[in-house]
Amino acid sequence: MNVFRLAGDMMHLLSIVVLLLKITGIKSCRGISLKTQELYLLVFITRYLDIFTNFVSLYNTVMKLVFLGTSSAIVYYMRYDRIIKLTYDKEQDTFKYLLLVAPSAVLALATSHVYTVLEVLWTFSIYLEAVAIMPQLVLLQRTQNIDNLTGNYVFLLGSYRGLYILNWIYRFFTEKHYRQWLVWTCGVVQTIIYCDFFYYYFLSWQNNEKLALPA
């Protein structure tokens, strides 16, 4: 494992910690898209089905369990916590699941490497992860007064994707048989989706102003 991959994973973990701290600390999930969180949970479930059959390292197994656990907790809090659920912007979070899930499923069926249930679901998770942030970005555009934690959450998540690309470039040059067009294409698409957000994030940081995305 190289330093980019490790840093990427840590950013991913940190983004989840920031989100959980926000939700449980201030008992509010304002500005957070439940749809994005549920899609991430679906991504983790479909990708990590091999958790007990394909052992890579203790690190991988622990991280998989952490991601499954924390994303379940986030969805649980937003849907069922007596206080937290009241702060969810349900009317604003209108992105249609089907718009993201259906194309991912079709592409997975069309391009899967091998046609086994696990492999098709794994491919599905790669496509779905690339677009799962979209409901969150749409919700951010509609949210006035985005709080710092929400902005930082999306920033950390975007950093994780950027670092994974550096990891792939590194592996491309250091490992002989490292050619993964599907994963790379989806990863690059996913990172491009964040570009607009990054632009405004840095702008607000530079000018010391509150983050606001133009509608």
Partner: peptide, 10 residues
Amino acid sequence: KDSKAAKDEL
């Protein structure tokens, strides 16, 4: 083969 390699990432 290529998809196997990605399985060591998260």
